[in-house]
Design a protein around this nucleic acid. Structure first.
Lengths: 195, 195
DNA sequence: TTGCTAACTTTACACCATGTAAATTGACAG
DNA sequence: CTGTCAATTTACATGGTGTAAAGTTAGCAA
C-alpha cells in the first residue's frame, strides 16, 4: 500500500487535503482528487488502496504538517491544570478550523469503516489523554469540582470539545475562533474547577 | 409526492424508523426498507419521491409518534428558568436515544441535501426556541451568569446539546441516559446560572 | 544495445445504490 | 364494462468505489 513515488504520494495527499478543505460538505470523489494531483484515478489506488486508506493517510499528513502531535505532547508536560485546560482549548480552537472538512469526511465514514474509525480514534487519543492529564492535575491541586471523578471529567471534557459543538458555534452562530476559545474556556472552568 | 395508500405509507415510515433505529450506523438502503415493509422499491419512490423525502417524512412521523412538539411546547410555557433548563435536558436526554440513528442519517446528508437540512433545522427550531426562552427567564430572574448575553447563551446551550456530545458520552463512555441528564444539567447550570 | 524494473496510464468491467420510465396487474366504484 | 388508483415488474441511466490487466515511459545496469 506504500508503493510509488513519495513525491506523487505527497502531491495526492496535499490535494486531498486542499480539496476537502474547500468543498463545503460536498463529497470529493477519488477522481476529483486524482485530476487535481495530475495523476490517474488508478494511481491513487496504487498508493492508498482505498478511499479510507487515503483519508487515513491524509489525516496523518495534515497532523504532521500542523505538528499537532508535538504541540499536544508539549501541553501534556505542563503542570498547572487550569493553564493546561486553557492551552488545550486554545490549541483545539485553532486546530479545528484547519482540519474541519477532513474531520467531517472521516466521521461520515466512521460507522461503516473500521479503518476510518481507527484513524480518527488514533488522532483523537492524544486529545483524550490531554483531558485525562488535566483532570489529574486538577485533582492534585485540589480544585476539581467535587461532583466529578477525574475519569468522568475527562470524558465530559473530551465530549464537549466535539466537532459538532465547534461547528454550530463558529459556522452557524458565527462565533470567531477567539470567541469560541474564550467562551468555551470560561464555561469549562466553571464546570470542572471548584469555585 | 403524497399519493398511495396512507396505510402503506405509514408502514413504510414505521419500517424506516425501526430499521434505522437498529442499524448501528450501517446504511439502510431503500431496498431494505421496501422489503421490510413488504412493498416494492418503486412503491417507496411513489410515496416519497426520494431518499431524502423519505427521511424527512420519517422524522415528522417519529416526532408525531413521540409527541415531541407538544412536549417541547409545554416546556416553553414554563416560567422558572432553572426548572425549564432541567426539563429541557431531561426531555432531550430521553428523546435522543430514540431518534439517534435517524438524526445521524439526516445529518449525514445535511450538507449535500437542502431538503434534509431544512427538515433537520425545522425539527430543531423548537429546541432552539426553548434555549432562548430559558435564557430570557434567567435574565428576568437576574440569575444569568454575567459573561453571557441571552443570545450567546442560547446559542451555546443549543450547541452543547449536540448529538455528537450525547453520542460520545452515552455510546463511547457508557453513561446512562440518567447520568447524561444529571451531569449535563449540573454542568449547564454552572455555566449559565450565576452562582 | 538490450533488457529489466518501477511508476504510472489506459481501458474495461463488476458492483451497488439512487433515481427514472413505462407497461402491466388487480381491485373496486360507478 | 370501463376507468382509475395502488402497486408491481422490468429495464435502464447515472455515478461512485473498487479490481484487473495490458501498455507506456524513464532510468538504470550488464
Amino acid at each position: 500500500m506504500s508503493s510509488g513515488d513519495p513525491e506523487t504520494r505527497r502531491r495526492i495527499l496535499e490535494k486531498t487535503w486542499r480539496l476537502m478543505e474547500r468543498s463545503r460538505g460536498r463529497q470529493v470523489s477519488i477522481d476529483d482528487i486524482a485530476r487535481a494531483a495530475g495523476v490517474s484515478r488508478q494511481a491513487v489506488y496504487l498508493h492508498f488502496g482505498s478511499r479510507t486508506g487515503l483519508l487515513v493517510e491524509t489525516v496523518r499528513y495534515v497532523d504532521e504538517a500542523k505538528d499537532a502531535g508535538t504541540r499536544l505532547e508539549t501541553l501534556r508536560q505542563a503542570t498547572d491544570g487550569v493553564q493546561l485546560l486553557e492551552a488545550l482549548v486554545d490549541f483545539w480552537g485553532n486546530y479545528l478550523p484547519e482540519i474541519h472538512e477532513l474531520a467531517k469526511a472521516l466521521l461520515a465514514v466512521r460507522e461503516t469503516d473500521r479503518a476510518a474509525a481507527a484513524a480518527w480514534d488514533d488522532r483523537m487519543e492524544l486529545t483524550r489523554q490531554c483531558c485525562r492529564v488535566i483532570m489529574r492535575c486538577l485533582v492534585r491541586d485540589g480544585i476539581l469540582a467535587p461532583e466529578w471523578t477525574p475519569e468522568q471529567g475527562a470524558e465530559a471534557l473530551y465530549a464537549l470539545l466535539a466537532v459538532d459543538v465547534w461547528e454550530r458555534l463558529t459556522q452557524e452562530s458565527g462565533w470567531s475562533s477567539r470567541q469560541y476559545v474564550a467562551r468555551m474556556t470560561t464555561a469549562l472552568k466553571k464546570i470542572f474547577v471548584k469555585q
